[in-house]
Design a protein around this nucleic acid. Structure first.
Lengths: 146, 146
DNA sequence: TTGTGTGCAAATTATTTGCAGTTAT
DNA sequence: ATAACTGCAAATAATTTGCACACAA
């Protein structure tokens, strides 16, 4: 387990790597998030970090979460949050989600290989279907200067 | 290929099955969506359906898309859109997303079996990682009356 | 000192809701 | 006739942005 001092050291080198300033709020936000579990939203992170930094603003939380995600410090699980999307392809298929432009392409199961799965998991979850997102770079984004 | 008449017949029986009224806007919306490809957002559907029903409102499009999704006529691909979620579990794992309460649980790869995949697909997409959503009913929602 | 970062308030985007009038059954 | 549906406008939720002041390099 990392103690607070190690966490601070880790954080400093993370910031150095990505060329971002080490500010107090950024540091506390990072430590707070490290201590959280599950899949928190910015509002949830804000509620927790506010306990240690009562004057921090929600905007700062948003800005820094984006920064952390871009730097690869944390990962975003909602790759296509933001707006509802309806699936128009009724054949079984997976999705190729470009991590840069967020474009979503369909992909036949044969291209990836179908995972085996059981209908009911040991924790009681009853499986209806798998939704597989393949995250990566689309051909266009690989060749773009960016 | 279904012609317009067959589509209308299909739609009527769909509505009958789900006990919803067959209205003109609902009918045209359905036909329009059937003709679309990819992963349209409500705004995109609205833009297209407006060409045939210039007075339709965006609210009606939203209401009916929800109705279609609930009835199983169309499927929603964005299972956790709405708000950004940060992944706090750094171990490789999948997600169990309950289709009723939308709760997201983590799940070890061993429970599902890992899909085999290649690093670069034939269309040039460079795979970084897989994000697998297992959609179904959580134990709680299975036993709830609802 | 100089560019970044922060907090605040206003702006935007996505979506939902209340309501009065209209239509399907 | 009656309940469900529609369009419109206002409300809400999620996120972003502009800006003046403060802090890190």
């Amino acid at each position: 387990m990392l103690d607070m001092h190690d966490t601070a050291v880790t954080f400093r080198s993370l910031c150095a790597e990505h060329g971002i300033a080490v500010t107090h709020q950024r540091q506390v936000l990072y430590e707070t998030m490290q201590g959280m579990h599950g899949h928190p939203s910015p509002e949830e992170v804000y509620a927790v970090v506010k306990r240690r930094l009562p004057t921090i603003s929600l905007a700062t939380v948003y800005k820094n979460i984006h920064l952390f995600v871009e730097s690869g410090v944390f990962r975003q699980l909602s790759m296509h949050h933001g707006t509802l999307r309806v699936e128009m392809n009724s054949h079984p298929h997976h999705h190729l989600v470009c991590s840069v432009c967020k474009q979503i392409q369909d992909c036949a199961p044969e291209e990836l290989g179908l995972p085996a799965y059981s209908e009911r998991l040991s924790n009681g979850f009853a499986v209806e279907r798998l939704s597989i997102d393949v995250i990566g770079l689309c051909a266009d984004c690989q060749r773009r200067p960016n």
